[in-house]
Nucleic acid binder design. Structure first.
Length: 386
RNA sequence: GGGUAGGUUCCGGAGCGGUCAAACGGGGCAGACUGUAAAUCUGCUGGCUAUGCCUUCGAAGGUUCGAAUCCUUCCCUGCCCA
């Protein structure tokens, strides 16, 4: 493929590139580019938000370039302050390694494992001497670091900024020097960090990397960025039904955005929004599961009024409790979503619980449950009595 | 190091001896309405098999019949000065 064609493919869906000219120049050499993506294993599970940038990296692979995935075992210990109003709590070494493992497994749902170079940045940072650290720090100025929006905001709001946090961009930037990156990918919030990488590469006498920023995917709430801690995410390992249901709950505006960012397609404006959303949800399920799973999810969805035929998790009522409160609490626990008794009591009293479509709102009621009945817990969760 | 302002429930932020499980706002959850969307309205939002009990207001002690509120010591943060 010609450099120009590659350029047009690679720039598609990106938010910002610095600069296209440099990228074209690098492509024109005809040698595989080293495309860097640094990830910090701060959370074990990947979600659709991560997938945007991973998909782009895969595109590089498909064009014959070298994907370099940096697992930030070292940087995770610092904690990326990007977008944060507070200092991150540090993770233990064990947590980081554990997360790194599942992170890789999940990343290879998207990336081609055979064509991915994986490096841990602890490899070079753990053995760095203090004088090397000082030398590295000497290459940037305080003023540069304080240009960062989040630091500036925190300072303006009289909140603390700890010194290790200003090290983060420097450390991330040094990764680019170590892996000799030609291009670094990241979300738009990574712009600053990636630019630091360019500076450090220049100081090291290298040709600076091209910055490629991808849009940040909003979470299910449509406002904040998708993240596990905000609980507004769709995990890439979630079950087809779960995934489908979550995507169906997003707003129409968000649906348009997801379609472009995740599938690279526009929503058909002529179609009824619900139908369009089902298609979107189906395609996403298909990507992480299979076409059959997607079909099943759609048909489950369409049948949801029909209690007889929907596929639901099975639930065996507890033997030690026969009051509604105890039963419902056990049901939540069986879905691995334990709730406190008070929470469950509230749900019951507020009319969230239904048995075969009938609302039950007395926590002390002792319903007789029969096999096959559907116990609705809340909007998203129902179980079938085993 | 000196001065000064603070640390309250998920977040912001009131409360400054009893009426405090703690106002108000945000977020979240549930109900109504709908397209299991958005918007809107209503309710809930520490725990407990619960008209009561238990644990929370940076930590530990103390004063008091009674403390988030007063005292002592300690820990932590911001700002100004050096």
């Amino acid at each position: 493929m010609s450099p120009e064609e590659q350029l047009s493919l690679l720039t598609r869906g990106t938010a910002q590139i610095l600069s296209e000219k440099e990228l074209l120049k690098k492509l024109t050499r005809g040698e595989p580019l080293r495309a860097k993506l640094g990830v910090d294993p701060t959370s074990p599970d990947l979600h659709l938000g991560h997938s945007v940038v991973l998909e782009k990296l895969r595109q590089f692979q498909e064009l014959g370039h070298q994907a370099v995935l940096i697992i930030g075992d070292f940087t995770a210990q610092i904690g990326d302050p990007t977008g944060r109003a507070k200092t991150r709590p540090p993770l233990t070494r064990e947590e980081i390694l554990e997360n790194a493992k599942t992170y890789q497994e999940q990343a290879f749902c998207i990336l081609d494992k055979e064509k991915t170079e994986i490096v841990f940045n602890g490899e070079w940072f753990n053995s760095m001497s203090f004088s090397e650290v000082i030398q590295l720090n000497a290459q940037v100025t305080m003023q540069q670091m304080l240009q960062r929006e989040d630091f500036k905001n925190r300072i303006a709001n009289d909140q603390e900024v700890r010194l290790h946090e200003i090290q983060y961009p420097i450390v991330q930037g040094y990764d680019s020097v170590k892996v000799r990156a030609d291009v670094e990918l990241g979300g738009t919030d990574q712009l600053f960090n990636i630019l630091v990488g360019r500076d450090l590469q220049k100081s090291a006498g290298m040709e600076p990397q091209v910055v490629m920023c991808l849009p940040i995917l909003e979470g299910l709430d449509g406002v904040q960025k998708m993240s596990k801690s905000l609980n507004n995410y769709v995990g890439i390992t979630e079950s087809p039904g779960e995934m489908f249901g979550k995507i169906m709950s997003i707003s129409d505006d968000l649906m348009a955005r997801y379609s472009i960012l995740l599938l690279g397609e526009e929503i058909d404006a002529a179609e009824h929004p619900v139908e369009a959303k089902k298609k979107l949800a189906g395609k996403i399920v298909e990507r992480y599961h299979s076409a059959e799973a997607a079909q099943q999810a759609i048909s489950n969805w369409n049948n949801r009024g029909n209690l007889e035929s929907v596929e639901l998790p099975k639930f065996t009522p507890p033997t030690d409790r026969n009051d509604l409160l105890g039963i419902v609490q056990a049901a939540f626990a069986s879905l691995e979503e334990p709730k406190s008794g008070s929470d469950v009591r509230r749900l019951i009293q507020q009319g969230s619980i239904q048995i075969d479509g009938e609302k039950v709102s007395d926590p002390k009621a002792e319903p007789t449950l029969e096999s096959g009945q559907v116990l609705k817990l809340n909007k998203k969760r129902s179980v079938r009595i085993a």
